[in-house]
Write a protein that binds this DNA or RNA. Structure first.
Lengths: 144, 144
DNA sequence: CTCTTAATAGATAGGCAAGTCTATTGAAAC
DNA sequence: GTTTCAATAGACTTGCCTATCTATTAAGAG
């Protein structure tokens, strides 16, 4: 419904990492299995998470990825942005170059309400919330 | 940000029609200009609006499209659905076939909050709201 | 009737996000 | 040091949503 496939993938991966906090690094094969993302494609997304400082990677034997930021300090919006999302670049519903309160497109006020609630969600949900609310990572295999 | 291009186009077109209620039919060239949608592509979308009963089309001289439902009875969700959107078919963030309250994916509760606010918006905003809140159609040309 | 305007239909093409493949680099174990 | 495991890099391919093109059908004007 919202966002693109890559955003979904990034959220899945970081969710797995937050659940694995404290344990050994999760290697990319495992991560690809849990998240059901093509492994090579996931690697690219993880690269972005590493560059943004949200994950660390460890090469070689026993290597993999681990979260490198306090979950309560990582918001959903941060992950989306790191994965390439940019709220400012989102086109106006009407396709207008300039569309703001001064020169609103015919759908501006209505659309703004939707954007506001999306922003509210993405900025006020942290990975600490996700860690607390999500099912256990161990249960993942069982469920699928 | 949300939904696909086609959904945006459908909302633009119906917004123009609701603003033109009472006047002569808006022909597809005019509609394409106002909405900035490729005219042949817009035709296909309008076909769906006609089939859904939200617009009427008039062929020949002086023909075009006009709204055929009371604005207060048409919700944003209706237009989205007619344009091809299906909430039930929206994949789970985690890509699970079955993902509900019984077998929630690790992001289920968090994602649900976003879906709820989207639904709330799409189901509770009518084209009467849009008509009242939007800038006048005459101003459109001026603004762009 | 016929002329003009405009919607409809379906086949075809483009563009870009998503996914794949191959090779390389880096780190740990022994 | 050498072997093995695993991340990184980047070129290449795929697939699907958008968009375009061509031809047809329908309706009103005169």
């Amino acid at each position: 419904m919202f966002l693109n496939q890559t955003s979904h993938y990034a959220l899945r991966a970081m969710t797995c990492l937050v659940k694995a906090t404290g344990s050994a690094p999760v290697n990319s094969k495992e991560l690809a299995d849990f998240t059901d993302v093509p492994s090579h494609y996931l690697s690219k997304i993880m690269r972005k998470m590493v560059e943004a400082g949200y994950a660390r990677s460890q090469k070689g034997h026993g290597g993999g990825f681990m979260m490198s930021i306090e979950p309560r300090k990582l918001r959903i919006m941060d992950v989306l942005v790191a994965a390439g999302f940019d709220m400012e670049e989102q086109p106006c519903v009407f396709g207008w170059e300039k569309c703001d309160n001064n020169k609103p497109c015919p759908l501006h006020p209505v659309w703004k309400r939707l954007k506001d609630c999306f922003n509210d969600w993405a900025l006020n949900t942290t990975f600490e919330d996700i860690r607390k609310e999500s099912t256990l990572i161990e249960e993942v295999k069982f469920y699928r």
